[in-house]
Amino acid sequence: MKTESLIRALVADTAIDRRPVVILTGGLLAALVGTVFFIWVTLGFRDDLTAALANPVSSLRFVLTGSLALVAGRLALLLSRPAGEARARLWPLLVVLAVALAAVLWAGRTTPPGGLLMAVVGKTAGACLISIVLLSVVPVAVILATLRHGATTAPVLAGRLAGLCGGGLAAMAYALHCTEDTPLFYVTWYGLAILAVTVISGLVGARLLRW
C-alpha cells in the first residue's frame, strides 16, 4: 500500500480520542469515591475519626499519602504523552519522602527506646499491607488504562508512577480505617505496601504500555 493511500484513509477517519487528563480525572475521582465507599462498607471507618483528624501526627498520613498521589498522578499524566519523561521532574517525590522520614525520626526520638520495636510492628501490619495492596488495584488499573490510551515513551517509569499514585490513594483511603497513629508504623507499612504496588505496576507497565 502506498503511503498516500494510507494518508487518505487516515484523513477520512475523523474520530479523535479524548485527552488523557479528561479520562484520568474522571476515572480517579470515581475510583477514589468507590474505594472510600468500599472501606466504609467492609472494614468500616475508625470510631474516633474526627478526633484523629484533629491530631496532626495522625492526620499527617492523609497529607503524605495524598500529596504522594497528587505528585505521582501529575507526573503520570505528563508521561502519558510522547517524550513526557524529558519534562518530568521527579524531585517533588523526594520531598514527600523526606517529610515522611523526618516524621519517623521525630517519632523515634519521642518514643521510649523500649517501645520502639512494638511501635513499628504495631498490631495490624499484615492487614495493612494486604489491604493497601488490594485497594490499589482499581486506582492503578484506572491510571494504567489512561496511560495506555495515551502514548508513553517510558513505559516502566510510567507504570511505576501509576503504582505510586494508585498506592498512595489506596493508603489514604485505608487510613480512614486504620488506628495506628505513629509514623513509625504508618511510614513503614504504608510505605512498604506502596513500594510493592509501585514495583508490580512498573512490571505491568513494561508490557501493557507498549503501543
Binding site: L10, I16, D17, R19, P20, R81, P82, G150, A151, W211
Partner: peptide, 8 residues
C-alpha cells in the same frame, strides 16, 4: 494518527 490527541 491514533495518538494525535496526546499533542497539547
Amino acid at each position: 494518527h491514533l495518538k494525535r490527541h496526546t499533542w497539547t
